[in-house]
């Protein structure tokens, strides 16, 4: 279709991608701008990046975010795998719909609600707010995403492989470890990566559930953003975009590779 609807859709696609990528490109470009006035070009510099390394508050916040991200993504991936397995393999058990609703609701739930509810829990059980509470909160809100990714993979491959293993006498745990796990491993990796990036990026839930001394990177960036644009934020933003893009590309390649292996 080179005319009519096809042409409209084609141009929409091109314009849409320009809309999606132009702001990111500009953010990166102006992180190398040697002028405090972020959007007025004043020559090329890398001094904002050098400045970041000396910014101890920012580095400390980045370290907090990294620790919380690794721990919460791990918990979310384990829980997400179990949920996906139950939903995909246990048929129509009682409470199946309820389990799915509990797991997937946080994906669409406005963050302020999730954040407030978790804070109230931590206060009620008298848990000191800090890295641990942020980790638990992040694990809770990213589990649904992990379950969705792994569930899609489980639905996509032939379960007769597992059943064959079990018919041949393998106990379920062995069939899972030998047959299922290798097939869904790429999805598990992707789920972990998504949970990690969501945790690394979250402002609202971390703000509610953190305590003194446990400021995360987005909280730090946000408090600077409220004062207006500044070249430091452009530099941090550029680094985050580059790291995450590299991770996503690696995960995509792994997933594609795994799919081919799984289909074979």
């Amino acid at each position: 279709m080179k005319h009519g609807i096809g042409a409209v859709a084609g141009s929409a696609l091109i314009l849409g991608f320009v809309f999606i990528y132009a702001p990111i490109a500009l953010l990166i470009l102006f992180s190398f701008n040697d002028s405090r006035l972020v959007t007025v070009w004043g020559g090329f510099t890398t001094r904002w990046y050098a400045g970041l390394l000396e910014n101890e508050a920012l580095m400390g916040a980045a370290w907090n975010s990294l620790r919380v991200g690794v721990a919460s993504a791990t918990v979310a991936t384990v829980m997400g795998t179990l949920i996906a397995l139950a939903l995909a393999r246990f048929g129509r058990f009682r409470g199946r719909g309820l389990l799915a609703a509990m797991a997937f609701a946080p994906i669409v739930m406005p963050e302020v609600i999730t954040a407030l509810s978790l804070l109230l829990l931590f206060v009620a059980v008298d848990l000191d707010r800090g890295a641990l509470t942020i980790t638990l909160a992040h694990a809770a809100f990213t589990t649904g995403f992990a379950a969705a990714i792994i569930g899609a993979r489980l639905a996509g491959f032939d379960r007769s492989l597992e059943e064959a293993a079990m018919d041949l006498g393998a106990p379920p745990l062995l069939a899972f470890a030998q047959v299922t796990l290798p097939l869904i491993a790429p999805a598990i990796a992707a789920a972990w990566a998504l949970a990690f990036t969501l945790s690394l990026d979250d402002l609202v839930i971390a703000s509610f559930t953190s305590g003194p001394g446990s400021t995360t990177l987005p909280m730090r960036i946000y408090s600077q953003m409220r004062l207006g644009v500044s070249p430091d934020i452009n530099a941090v933003g550029t680094l985050i975009v580059l790291v995450v893009t590299a991770a996503v590309l690696a995960a995509t390649v792994a997933l594609k590779h795994g799919e081919r292996a799984g289909a074979g």
Binding site: I20, Y21, L27, V38, D201, P218, V229, V244
Partner: peptide, 21 residues
């Protein structure tokens, strides 16, 4: 992939980018 990649990169940073624009 082009559609999904930005969804993974920082939401906060992508909104911030619009302030300068």
């Amino acid at each position: 992939a082009l559609m999904i990649v930005p969804f993974w990169t920082s939401f906060l940073i992508r909104i911030y980018a619009w302030i300068g624009i």
